[in-house]
Design a binder for these strands. Structure first.
Length: 120
DNA sequence: AGTATGACGGTTA
DNA sequence: CTAACCGCCATAC
């Protein structure tokens, strides 16, 4: 329904789409990602791909980009790779935080079968 | 308009 | 298990 998407209802002078950012200088997409991550319950995790699917936009890659820039504002440790392993530069700290909140782990990875959150 | 990049994911070897 | 490849898509330039 409705074809209008961009253009219109935009302040004159603004470039367009996601630029101009409303809060914290975040793009609309970044807000969707961070909002989703903030909803993951303690002890549970979502993969980058899960988040993209959950918000219906982007991909695992694009979610990773948002997390790299603004992840510090949310429970970033609850977003892991599909393998259950936290992203490269954060493995140790992420595992430490996850174990502290009761997330099941084995070695350097989260036991996805038990900790993966479906968004319910 | 295009090109390059990246806290990814899945497949194949 | 590791490594290479390709698809993915918002952003930056």
């Amino acid at each position: 329904m409705n074809g209008i998407r961009k253009g219109a209802s935009r302040l004159p002078g603004a470039h367009a789409d996601s630029v101009h950012a409303g809060v914290e200088g975040l793009t609309d997409y970044a807000r969707l990602v961070l909002d989703a991550v903030a909803k993951i319950p303690p002890g549970k995790v979502m993969t980058y791909g899960d988040v993209a699917e959950f918000i219906g936009r982007g991909s695992a890659r694009t979610v990773g980009m948002v997390m790299a820039r603004h992840g510090s504002e949310v429970p970033w440790q609850r977003v892991v790779q599909a393998s259950g392993r936290p992203a490269e530069p954060l493995i140790d700290e992420a595992l430490q935080l996850l174990r502290a909140e009761g997330c099941p782990t084995r070695g350097e990875r989260v036991v996805m079968a038990r900790a993966r959150w479906d968004g319910s």
